Amino acid sequence: MNNIAGTKSSLTWAVHISVAVLVIAWLLPTVGLFVSSFRTADQIATSGWWKALFSQEQTLSLRAAPAEEQVQVGNLYVIEGQIFESEARPEIQTWGISSRAVDAFIPGDSAELRGGGIFTLDVDGTYRIENTEPFDVSRGQRVFITAEVPPEFTLNNYYTVVFDPNNIEGMSKAFINTLTVTIPATIIPILIAAFAAYALAWMEFPGRALLIAAVVGLLVVPLQLALIPLLKFHNDIGIGKGYIGVWLAHTGFGMPMAIYLLRNYMVGLPRDIIENARVDGATEFQIFIKIILPLSFPALASFAIFQFLWTWNDLLVSLVFLIDSTGETTVMTKQIVEILGTRGGNWEILATAAFVSIIVPLIVFFAMQKYLVRGMLAGSVK
């Protein structure tokens, strides 16, 4: 009875579980990246993003005030202050004056300093250093504190990445450059492939079958195989170091997939509509503009999603065809690689930069994903 049309399969639950697992596996890295982009460096270093909403035990390295702030009180030289620079003052659990023994003392204890003097630290971060001789160390005493730190989120990461022009992490220019590469590299192949797909689907001419076979064959040509010859050709004609070269490269690499996808969709359109338009005197161009393009919007949107995502996330083609030592044409993927190479320890900056780079693809995908399945199934059902 399970094979009768209209009845539910006994394996429906397995399908639902599989879909749920795939969705969770896809969402978890994105959610983790989003949460990490708002966390501080200390919290990222001490706990995973899934613990971002809970207080965490952290060991902080802080410094007391320098020797210039000492005052003489009777026969003693005293330095007093608050060990925490910010208003957020967690409750201190243990502390120490050596990295080898960060939990040697508890709040209220006093420690003898190597250079002479007594260091006393209270639970709220108030400290007192006193000595019978003047302090001659210019830098303040380093103190290691273990405390229960509450959750902390900040927008400084985004300011540093996007808006701060004095830092290498500034990606505002790279963001504009990526849009400059991606938008034309998505529109140009769609325009050309739509005309070609209509001709291969509805126009009779010698060699059409060979052209269709050639398009299918080009789908399996590796991108890396054509990079060097294409770059040499671009350099010979003078477009190898600018936007025109990278636009044409993305257009050429995306054209076979675009023609194949759109042609399969257009073949499945009702023939009667096109024949009636021809009987009414419509030209091929009028049929293409007024009938074929509106009906083919799901396939156009489907390819636009793939081409946009591939071009936006591309690094190889940009590195080859956007040769610029000044950084004027640096795209976001290359900028993130530079951040990783120069500031590899600043995970909060890397997480923010990576999330900024995927915001636009996420918006495009969710805005147009309803057309994705319809476009991918083009030509599969008659």
Rank of each mutant, 00 (worst) to 15 (best):
E130I: 05
N131Q: 09
N131V: 01
T132V: 14
T132Q: 15
E133W: 12
F135I: 08
F135E: 08
F135A: 10
D136H: 13
D136G: 11
V137M: 12
V137L: 13
S138C: 13
S138V: 15
R142H: 10
R142K: 15
T146K: 05
A147M: 03
A147P: 09
A147K: 02
E148P: 06
E148R: 15
V149H: 04
P151T: 00
P151I: 00
E152P: 08
T154Q: 06
N156Q: 14
N157F: 07
N157K: 03
Y159G: 04
Y159W: 14
T160A: 06
V161G: 10
V162N: 07
V162E: 07
V162K: 05
P165L: 00
N167G: 13
I168A: 11
I168E: 08
I168P: 04
G170T: 01
G170C: 04
M171V: 03
M171Q: 06
K173I: 09
I176R: 09
T178N: 12
T178G: 08
L179D: 05
L179V: 04
T180Y: 10
V181I: 11
I183R: 06
I183S: 06
P184T: 04
P184N: 05
T186I: 00
I187D: 13
I188R: 00
P189M: 02
P189L: 02
I190F: 02
L191D: 07
L191M: 10
L191V: 10
A193E: 12
A193N: 12
A194L: 03
A194F: 01
F195D: 02
A196K: 09
Y198W: 07
Y198I: 02
A199Q: 15
A199T: 15
L200Y: 15
A201M: 09
W202I: 12
W202L: 13
F205R: 02
F205D: 03
F205V: 01
P206I: 05
